[in-house]
């Protein structure tokens, strides 16, 4: 059975909002311990795909297996058990602005694992150091942080409970190239240290090349190409070629209004 090797297995995933069909039959596998990056233009449904897998959105149709277990139609209680395997870094960081930085990082430890606050704080400070931030940052409010620091704190929060699967939604978008690369390195290190499976989405090719074992491209609601990162320049797929070289000419037509 291939189920044993796949941590995430998506089959025939459909999702529409009203008349707008966003996903129209996505098939995708992510192996245990693998780092898969989904690339695609803005508004092609990358975030929607990740949110369906996380259970934040309900698929209209299709199957999503996590570690061999069907998650579509799961009860709330089962869902909670699966959720504990996940860590997620949101596009904008999504830090809780009513809480201090360390409380953000320790959130799941305190609220979900019911750890004493001081013990959780120690772990939070450890994770803060892992993402290269000074201990003083722990006492700040998220609003006092720069974009790059917010991403780092978001990453520290995502890995605080040592998840088996980590999701990254556009981890480098909105950062300067150097900070972007710092985040890439942190992602690679964190995923490797945890031995976690990673599913990332991005339109930043430099980031994709760096953090991916395999790359998949999403276009018009489907995965149109998947392959090892080494093959991306010889994909033989004109859509992929157009995207990675960022050319306006080609088969991909940008909708002027999304």
């Amino acid at each position: 059975m291939t189920d044993k090797q796949n941590m995430i297995e998506v089959r025939g995933l459909h999702k529409a909002f009203g008349h707008k069909k966003v996903l129209t039959g996505v098939d995708l596998n992510v192996g245990v311990g693998e780092s898969l990056v989904v690339i695609g233009g803005s508004g092609t449904g990358k975030s929607v795909l990740i949110k369906n897998i996380l259970g934040l959105l309900k698929p209209d149709e299709g199957s999503i297996m996590i570690n061999g277990e069907e998650t579509v139609g799961m009860s709330a209680k089962e869902r909670l058990r699966i959720m504990k395997k996940f860590g997620m870094l949101f596009q904008g960081g999504a830090l809780f602005d009513s809480l201090k930085v360390w409380e953000n990082i320790a959130f799941a430890l305190i609220q979900s694992l019911r750890m004493p606050r001081m013990e959780a704080k120690d772990i939070a400070m450890e994770k803060l150091a892992m993402v290269g931030l000074d201990p003083e940052v722990g006492e700040l409010e998220p609003a006092e942080l720069s974009g790059g620091m917010q991403k780092r704190v978001g990453l520290a929060r995502a890995i605080a409970t040592q998840p088996e699967i980590i999701f990254f939604d556009e981890p480098t978008t909105g950062l300067d190239p150097i900070m972007g690369d710092v985040i890439n390195d942190l992602i690679i290190n964190c995923v490797r240290d945890l031995g976690a499976t990673a599913l990332s989405i991005t339109h930043d090719m430099a980031s994709a090349r760096k953090i991916a074992d395999r790359i998949a491209m999403i276009y018009e609601g489907k995965i149109i190409w998947v392959g090892p990162v080494a093959d991306i320049d010889n994909s033989g797929n004109e859509y992929v070629d157009q995207f990675i070289h960022g050319k306006a000419e080609g088969p991909i037509k940008m909708a002027v209004r999304g």
Binding site: K51, L54, G55, L56, L80, M83, K84, F86, G87, M88, F90, Q91, G92, A94, L95, F96, D97, S98, F107, A108, Q111, S112, R157
Partner: peptide, 20 residues
């Protein structure tokens, strides 16, 4: 305003992914 901001900045989604 507070919960709405949490919704549009994905903080509510973040709560769910942190098992809350």
């Amino acid at each position: 305003a507070e919960i709405g901001t949490m919704r549009v900045t994905e903080q509510i989604d973040a709560l769910v992914t942190l098992s809350t």
